[in-house]
Simulated assay, not measured.
Amino acid sequence: MAIFIFFAALWYLSLFSQTFFQHRYAAHGAFTMSKGWEKFFFIFTYITQGSSYMSPRAYAIMHRLHHAHTDTEHDPHSPSNSSNIFSMMWDTRSAYQQILHHEENVDVKYTKNLPLWKNFDKFANSAFSRLLWVAGYTSFFIAFATSPYQYLLLPIVVSMGAFHGAIVNWFAHKYGYINFKLKNTAMNLLFFDILMLGESYHNNHHKHPSSVNFGQRWFEIDPTYYIIRFLSFIKVINVVLVPNHRTAIR
Score class of each variant (00 low, 15 high):
F219V: 05
T111K: 15
D222A: 05
F44E: 09
H202I: 06
R246I: 06
R64H: 02
A186K: 00
F40V: 15
S210K: 11
Y226W: 12
T146R: 09
A26W: 05
W11C: 08
L231S: 01
G50F: 03
R229A: 05
D193R: 11
S147N: 13
F214E: 06
N179C: 11
Q98F: 00
P155A: 14
Y96C: 06
A26Y: 07
S210I: 08
T111C: 15
F230T: 01
R229M: 12
H23Y: 06
I194Y: 07
F219T: 05
T70K: 05
T70R: 03
H173W: 00
K181N: 14
L10V: 13
Y59F: 15
L15H: 11
L195A: 13
R229S: 05
F144C: 09
D107A: 11
A162S: 15
F128M: 10
L100K: 10
T146V: 12
S17E: 06
N213Y: 00
N204I: 08
P148F: 10
L13T: 14
Q18G: 05
L13P: 01
E38A: 10
H102L: 05
T70Y: 01
K207Q: 14
G36E: 09
Y59Q: 04
P148C: 03
P243T: 07
R229P: 04
A58R: 00
D222R: 02
T92K: 09
V157A: 03
Q49N: 03
T185L: 07
I156R: 06
